[in-house]
Structures are given as C-alpha cells and as structure tokens.
Design a protein around this nucleic acid. Sequence first.
DNA 1: AAGATCAGCAACCGCCTGACC
DNA 2: TGGTCAGGCGGTTGCTGATCT
Length: 277
Amino acid sequence: MGRVHPCCSEEKKVRKGLWSPEEDERLASHIARFGVSCWSSIPELAGLQRCGKSCRLRWMNYLRPDLKRGRFSQQEEDLIIALHKALGNRCSFDHCVHSWSQIAARLPGRSDNEIKNFWNARLRKKLRQREASSTGGTNKDPATSHRRRGGEDDRTTQPTAVFSRPFQLQARKDQPRPAGYVAGRAAGTSYDNDSHAAGSSVFVDAAAVTSGDAVLAAAESVAPSPTSTASACTEARGCDDGFLKAMVDDASFLFGDFYLDGNNDGSNSFWERHVFS
DNA sequence: AAGATCAGCAACCGCCTGACC
DNA sequence: TGGTCAGGCGGTTGCTGATCT
C-alpha cells in the first residue's frame, strides 16, 4: 500500500468531496497573490481544510485561468486519438508509456483529467464503434458501460484509422506558446535558429497515421526535426508509431513548430483559436 | 409521471518518482 | 545509501442532470 501523505492524514481533519465556491475563491485568490510554492502548505496558508493534493488537483483541473471549458473540437479529438494511439498502444520501447499528462501537454487549455474522462466516456466507445463497423461485428462494449469494472486494456486495441479525415501538419514559428511551454521543452532543443521552414506544410493522409514512418518521413521533408527530436525519431523508427512517438519524446515538437490545421487552409488553426494567458 | 439507465464530470485513491537529508 | 517527503500520475468511483422506457 502506498504511504499516506502527511497532509492527508486523519490527524488534520481535512474536508473531502465537492469544493464550495468559497473554497474555490480562497484557493484561487491565494495562488493569484502568492503563487504556488509548496502545495502541502497552501491549505493552511489559504485557510482551507483540504489536503495539499486536493488543492493541487482542484487548481490543475478546474481553477487554472488558462483552462478552457466546453466541448472538445474535432481537431482536439483527432489529436487525442492520435496521441493516445502513439502513447497508449503496444510499443517495443519500455519508455513508451501511456501518459494522459503528455497528451494534455499538447492540448492547451485542457487538463489531463479532462482528457482522460473524455477518452473513457467518448472516444474509446467511438473507436470501438468504428472498429466494429469495419469488421461487421457487434459492438457491445463492456468497457464503456456506465460503471466499468476492470475494462479491457486499451493498449491492446488497434484502431484501423485514427483520423476521420486528412489533416495538415504545418511548421510555424509565429504562434504564441501556451503557458508551460518552456518547461515542457526538451533540454537542449533550440527553436531560435531558422532551420524550420515556417509556414511550409505537409498534408498527411488519415490512413498514413497508422504507419508512423510514413508520417515521419513526410514531416521531415518540410521541417527537419530539432536535434533531440531527430534522435528520438531515429530511435522510434522501430516503433509502429515513430512520428507520433517522437512528438511525445520531445514536447516542443508540437508546441514549438507544428500545429494541426483541420481545414487544410491555414485559416483556422488549432493554435489560433486559443488564447493563452 | 416515475423509475431506470446513460453520460459527463469532479474528485479521491494508491502508487511511483525524484529531491533532499 | 537508504529513508522521508512532496509532487505528480493513472485508474477508479461517486454524484448529478439528461434521456429513455
């Protein structure tokens, strides 16, 4: 069993359950004034009877000012599916680990918890339906029933086509970076040189996404990867989803130079629809 | 109209990892 | 070098409103 966090021990008599508006206000105003230094000390400093972990969770998943609420766009959905496929499915590399936070890092304004819930509630079912319709099988999915218990491991499933339509992968240098971008960059990776052809693009067919090497080759043809990404790509070639895995290995690959343009016209980009505080 | 079921979301739990001593 | 602690993560559960029968 895991250790009980000191801040969560019974001794301190912490509140559990839904947060009240007053608690939200206390936490948000405290962080606005003093920032986040030590989560375990925040409850006391903010006058909250919550444990530090609970405060952190509330802030990360709900109170953060850069969070956007509301429905997931088609582009976000496509990106989640692609990244989940890259991160969550079979991969020969030990470090190729399923990570909602890594997916969330590529979806500005969305928390890992939100993406995880979205996946469990919607996308998993959607992919299975797509799979079932392509095989003509039935689609009774126990894993998506209201109360799943020990559902099937996603890593064993292989959707036949992860995108509903082609998308455009476009290199850019002029987009605002989301909060946390710098922290998310791979060490030693520089985007200050002009090795990337800003504005150049490559169209990627939906079917190609199931073959990482094809996408990787196409992407590299218009925008050479940063050094660290290049090595990651080389390493990832042994993986079915090399290109997407490379994106995972180097967070800056997406944040720094690429965005998804579902319209393929450069006019309504994923990034441009977001406001980063 | 009422109970059953579904769907979405918020939050907790248990575990892991890295920093620090 | 091993123990402790805090932060972080994925999995799971509970609640609630919407929809169905």
